[in-house]
Simulated assay, not measured.
Amino acid sequence: MEIADSTEIINSALDRIVAGYVFPSRAAEVDRALRARLAAGEYHALSGAALCEAVTAHLQEVCPDRHLRLLWQDEPRPPTAPADDGAGRAAFLALMRAENHGIRRSEQLDGNIGYLDVRWMADAGEGARAIGSAMELVARTRALLLDLRKCRGGSPAGSAMWCSYFFPDDEVHLNDVYERSTDSTRQYWTLPYLPAPRYLDRPVYVLTSVTTFSGGEDVAYTLQAHGRAEVVGETTRGGAHPTTHHPVTEHITVTVPTARSVNAVTGTDWEGVGVQPDRAVPAEKALETAHERARGRWG
C-alpha cells in the first residue's frame, strides 16, 4: 500500500534527478516542467503504476532519455539509502547468478557457425568464467552469431569483457564513461587476460532488435564502430547512459542516468538513436539472415 502521496513522490524523484542527472541543464528543464504539471494538479488523482507511467512519459517528453524513469514494483522493498551502491551491486549479482550470467544458449549451427544467445552483460568478475565457458564452446567455429535481440543491459565492464574476445590484445580503446558526480572519466580498453581463447580473424554478426538495450547496445555499437562485427536486425532501443537507482517508496524507484558513454571511434554514443544495423531486417529474420551470410562467406 503506497503511503506517500503523489506530491511527495514527485518532489523526491525530482530532487534526485536535479542532484544527479548527467546533464544538469536538462535536469533543470525536467524539474521546471514536472513541477508545473504538479502545481496544475495533473498527478493528484494518480497513484501506483499509473502515476509511474504518467511521470515517466512526461520525463521523457522533456528529456528523451530512456533510462530516466519512475518504476513501480508490486513487491514492496525497504527504501534503503538512495546511493547504496553495495546493495545495488548485490542485487545485480544475485540477478546475474539466477540468469546464468546472461548466457541463455550456446549452439553450433550448420556450417560450423557458432551461436550465442546473451540476455545480460554480466559482471566482469563473477561472470568471467561463464563468459569464458561460452566462448570456449564456439572457439573453433568459422563464424559467430552473437544474439543480443533480448539483451536488456548490464555491466559496462562486462560489455568490455565480451568485446575483448574479438580483438587480439589489450591495446584497443573501446570507450569512455564520464561520471557527473566525480567529474571524472573512466576508460575501457580490451582486457589483457581472458579465460578462453580470443575469437580472431573470423566474421562476427551481432543480432539486434528494438528490445536490445543499454549494455547490449554497448557491445553492438562498439564492435560495429571498430569494424569488428556486422549488425543484423533492427535499430536498438537507444539507452547509452549508466544509471543509478534511488528508492522513493517501498514500491517506487527513480532511475537517474548519472554518466554518459563516449565511443573511442565515433566520439559519441547511441543515446536516443539506437544502434543502426548494417543489414536491416525484422528481428525474427535476423538469425536466419546472419546464418545465411555467415555460411555464404565460407562457401
Rank of each mutant, 00 (worst) to 15 (best):
A94V: 07
A240C: 06
T243N: 12
L51D: 12
L71T: 12
G233N: 10
S106I: 07
T243A: 08
V177T: 12
A81D: 11
S155M: 05
T7A: 14
A128L: 00
W298K: 07
L145C: 08
G274I: 06
A27V: 06
Q276T: 15
G233L: 07
P247R: 06
A13C: 12
V210C: 06
R69D: 02
A130E: 13
L38E: 11
S164Q: 07
P78G: 01
A19S: 14
H44N: 08
A157S: 09
V265Q: 13
G238Q: 02
L34F: 06
E217K: 00
A240G: 08
A130W: 04
V177R: 03
L38G: 03
V210G: 14
V256Y: 03
G125E: 14
F166W: 05
L223F: 03
C151D: 03
P192N: 10
W270I: 05
S214H: 05
V177P: 07
P195H: 01
L207Y: 05
G238M: 01
A87Q: 09
V22E: 07
H251N: 15
G267W: 13
L116I: 13
A50D: 15
S133L: 12
L200M: 08
S106K: 05
L51N: 12
G132D: 02
V256E: 05
A45F: 03
A259T: 02
V177C: 11
G125L: 11
G267N: 12
V118D: 02
G132I: 01
R180P: 09
P82C: 04
A157C: 02
